[in-house]
Design a protein around this nucleic acid. Structure first.
Lengths: 342, 342
DNA sequence: GAGGCGTATGGTAGCGCTACCCATTACGTG
DNA sequence: CACGTAATGGGTAGCGCTACCATACGCCTC
């Protein structure tokens, strides 16, 4: 007669099976697995042997229900295909892959409303931590984050008022540094070209404006933006628009590298000399900017590192070792290349 | 005296609270939420009112434990930053976002062993479906997929022996079509440049080889590959290697668009005329290929659609309406552009 | 009008695990 | 030697939900 198995379990061994085989109580097995330090060496070995023999794997759903805490990191990004967030995600993933935490993905599509909806969905799951992109949550989202009952890390930017923790850099400073570099290199009629214009883009624009005003070069006609999602194609279109508005443009600071690449290709196509006639600066410093011809000046942003550090901070907070400084600015680096080397 | 709340729940309303308020049994609330058709109109309204008033949200962990089924799609991709998989992921996400299914992400880093590990981790969670990239699972992975007890969709490729379902296209045919196009355009010493060389790249190479042999043009020295991960930078390096080996090269079929872009930039840098001296064909047809100067011929692959359809098929299977044809070939499209227009 | 059958609702008993508290033992301490 | 204290292990009682089965009731059939 075979052991009568439950209707649902599908025959998978449970903690009770392990306990029986090891000759201990179920709770001791649970402890041996989660807090090995609190179980004697002997029992721990015995239990491990039973676990291995049965091929026992704890049921994460039962665990989550009993402990009111799921081993899940909720991650909210505004886009899956924007390679900037893909790299943040990769950093998060890599830092989590030796732990037993899982990643649950949310794509806000740059929408505050969608972010609220996702936070509402994530809440009842009792995630171990939440990592969200950006610092401009709606009041509702902010309240949901504050009452989530778990560490929260806002990433990509820094600001004065974190929900809990923050890892990022100053987009304003990045935009300012890029623009000041171009001014320094002798460019005067420097356009700003930007797509999507999410809050981070807005701050880069503000940095651009500050630099231009500081040098007495600002002119609103130099700014060309659109709410349309960014793409290389769009970079070309916007550059044409910008040139139509200001034919004597001698440089462009692009909101991101996709746009910059579109501008570069259009310059080739229209036989506009880069960097002599037009200087180009991008933002983010994707791999290809260095390889492009001419190579393109850009602001290198620590995307992968932001992902890594956000997880490290969240894990520390879970372990009760909250970092002293809740807001970490990872900075950026200006990469000067041929596209602005007049 | 306040209602004594449980030690753990944190005060969230439960199904019992809703049942009490609506004056029905808990099980009826559960049914009204999951199978509205099986509850009378009257009760359904009454229950919905109670749900709204209390702001009740079902606990997904309790649900998963009780039903031995989590509302989770496990998604396994080999890379998060490769924009090809990012778009598949976006397709999956978009198709799932109006349902209550969550996405749990796994990154195999192109490793069969890591894929096995992830499947082992995903198993105990009892996901509602699994979507995995590729069709070359290890025997262990295959067994894990077969015994997962849920619909499985292998994506990106098609093949004769699906674990369950497949959505993709033929990389062999894609490589062959690209190469044949170049031959037709008059190119003769066409190199193959490939990085990473995962199974899909291998099949594209096989397609290239078949086309070259068919035209009596094959020469193993024309092939330049590396196991190193693909990047634009690498495209430049490999192209230099290829030229060093075969100085009279008159075209290259690139394993993917990143490589193609690296080749294009290197041609600019070395003043090699494209398409006259060297023709270039890429693979995947990223947005930027059309904008590049000269625009780059590529094979357009239905990445987003693969993601969408894989979810649609999985959802149909969950609903018991398994598609008649378990393997769907979504094809590809050759985009002829300036880079091969001799 | 007895029996059969389908439909709507509810009760009971878990799902597999852990929080909470208690029991046991070993080891000082005065 | 009674008593505190710490370390170790276990029992009990859920976590919030749903599978399974029972029940009640109306309607049809012959």
């Amino acid at each position: 007669m075979t052991k009568p198995r439950s209707r649902r379990g599908g025959g998978r061994p449970t903690i009770a099976d392990v306990a029986r085989k090891a000759g201990v109580g179920a709770i001791t097995v649970s402890r041996a697995l989660r807090e090995p330090g609190r179980v004697s060496e002997d029992l721990r070995r015995q239990i491990q042997a039973a676990v291995d023999e049965l091929g026992y794997l704890p049921d994460p759903n039962a665990r989550a229900l009993a402990s009111a805490r799921a081993e899940v990191f909720g991650v909210l990004v505004p886009s899956l295909t924007n390679s900037v967030f893909a790299e943040v995600l990769r950093g998060i993933y890599d830092s989590l892959s030796d732990s037993s935490y899982r990643i649950q993905l949310g794509n806000t599509h740059y929408s505050g409303l969608e972010e609220e909806r996702l936070l509402q969905v994530f809440g009842p799951q009792r995630p171990a931590a939440l990592i969200v992109a950006g610092i401009d949550q709606t009041p509702t989202s902010r309240r949901l984050l504050e009452t989530a009952g778990c560490p929260v890390v806002q990433v990509m930017e820094t600001g004065p008022d974190p929900v809990d923790m923050m890892v990022g850099f100053s987009h304003f400073d990045g935009g300012k540094a890029a623009t000041e570099h171009m001014i320094e290199m002798g460019y005067r009629r420097i356009g700003f070209i930007g797509a999507r214009m999410d809050p981070r883009s807005q701050r880069r624009l503000a940095g651009y404006r500050a630099a231009m005003e500081g040098a007495g070069l600002f002119d609103p006609r130099l700014i060309t933006t659109t709410p349309v999602p960014s793409s290389v194609t769009l970079g070309r279109e916007l550059f044409r628009d910008a040139l139509a508005k200001v034919p004597r443009l001698d440089g462009v600071f692009c909101n991101n590298d996709d746009i910059a690449l579109g501008v570069l290709f259009e310059c080739h196509r229209a036989s506009i000399a880069v960097p002599m006639t037009i200087g180009i600066t991008g933002f983010n410093d994707l791999d290809m900017m260095e390889v492009a011809f001419p190579s393109v000046t850009s602001i290198r942003t620590p995307r992968y590192e932001i992902g890594r550090l956000s997880v490290a901070m969240a894990l520390a907070a879970i372990a009760g070792k909250r970092p002293h400084e809740p807001v970490v600015d990872l900075g950026f680096e200006l990469k000067c290349r041929e596209s602005t080397a007049r």
